[in-house]
């Protein structure tokens, strides 16, 4: 039924540990979210591809998983299904399916429901730990919803233990929390050439640089450097900005793309009403990706022409 895609399979393998950890953090509910997202995404793509006579890609499984991992743990299942179907439909199928989409489907779906149901989503975070029992319930909606994600706490001037940030034992979206795990995944993806290291480094680097500059300069609204470990910044840098379809292909373009995403995240976090800006930043980057590619290949052509002209000159 699926079109076989080795790269997408590797991403899926890489996501298994995150999913496993998140079950421990938030309980079996995570599995329902994952299943809902996968079914909605696959079904949407299947219906469209059947009408067109194409094949369902394995990439849709990656999109569905990433979307589920970027949801808050108590997100209602209908919201997850809507996000997943919208993302695959509006951000992928209308552009012509796999390989032709401009925007990352998982991010588009996530943002659609985050804007539509801002209040609902904001109240869907809860404290992690012991299969969801830390929040008081093994299944379903936990009794105590504590909305304070580390970013919100830092915005209000509080601080969060760095160890919690590194290990991921802090409230947030399902799969975004454990920095240690994400680092391991990044190494695996880069080693197997599934993800471009340039994209990860440029996104993380520019974000970190801007965050530290703003913090040092004492700009009002700037967040402390440890905020880089909070929210979904690392998750997005490793798994979203590296999406091979929506990211640019040329070297120079990849540096520019990652830097744009990283810097936008910090600007949105520091100066806008939203506490998290990673989704907006990725979409912004997506819309510039092909332009960066074009600029990179044009400047490469120019350089080539120049060296050829120089060689000709020398040959005379």
């Amino acid at each position: 039924m699926f079109q076989k895609q080795i790269m997408m399979r590797r991403v899926l393998y890489a996501l298994i540990p995150i999913a496993a950890l998140s079950v421990w953090l938030y309980g079996p509910r995570v599995l329902f979210i994952l299943a809902t997202s996968l079914v909605a995404a696959t079904l949407t793509e299947f219906l469209f591809e059947r009408a067109k006579g194409g094949k369902t890609s394995e990439a849709v499984l990656v999109s569905g998983t990433l979307l589920a991992l970027s949801m808050p743990p108590a997100a209602p299942l209908w919201v997850v299904a809507l996000a997943s179907a919208f993302g695959v439909f509006m951000a992928k199928e209308v552009y012509g399916g796999f390989g032709r989409n401009i925007f990352n489907p998982a991010i588009a779906g996530r943002l659609f429901v985050y804007i539509s149901f801002a209040a609902l989503m904001g109240q869907s975070f809860y404290q992690p730990g012991s299969f969801g029992q830390a929040a008081g319930s093994l299944f379903g909606q936990p009794d105590a919803i504590s909305g304070a994600t580390p970013l919100a706490i830092m915005r209000d001037g509080g601080s969060v233990p760095i160890l919690d940030l590194l290990l991921g034992t802090r409230s947030g979206a399902i799969g975004e929390s454990s920095i240690v795990l994400l680092a391991a995944i990044a190494l695996y993806l880069v080693a197997t050439k599934t993800a471009q290291w340039r994209l990860i480094v440029s996104t993380l680097g520019s974000g970190a640089a801007l965050c530290i500059i703003l913090w040092m300069a004492g700009v009002p609204g700037a967040l402390p450097p440890q905020s880089l470990l909070a929210g979904s910044f690392v998750f997005v840098a490793v798994l979203m900005s590296t999406d091979p379809v929506s990211a640019p292909k040329k070297k120079g373009a990849q540096w520019a793309y990652g830097s744009l995403i990283g810097a936008s995240v910090i600007v949105i976090r520091s100066f806008s009403l939203f506490s998290e800006g990673t989704s907006f930043a990725v979409l912004l980057g997506n819309s510039f990706a092909s332009m960066f590619d074009r600029m990179a290949s044009q400047s490469a052509q120019k350089r080539k022409a120049k060296t050829e002209a120089a060689a000709k000159e020398a040959g005379k």
Partner: peptide, 15 residues
């Protein structure tokens, strides 16, 4: 019923 904020805003008309 949970209202869809995005439908009130202009972007939804684009879709």
């Amino acid at each position: 019923f949970v209202t869809w904020t995005i439908m009130i805003m202009a972007p939804s008309a684009f879709f």
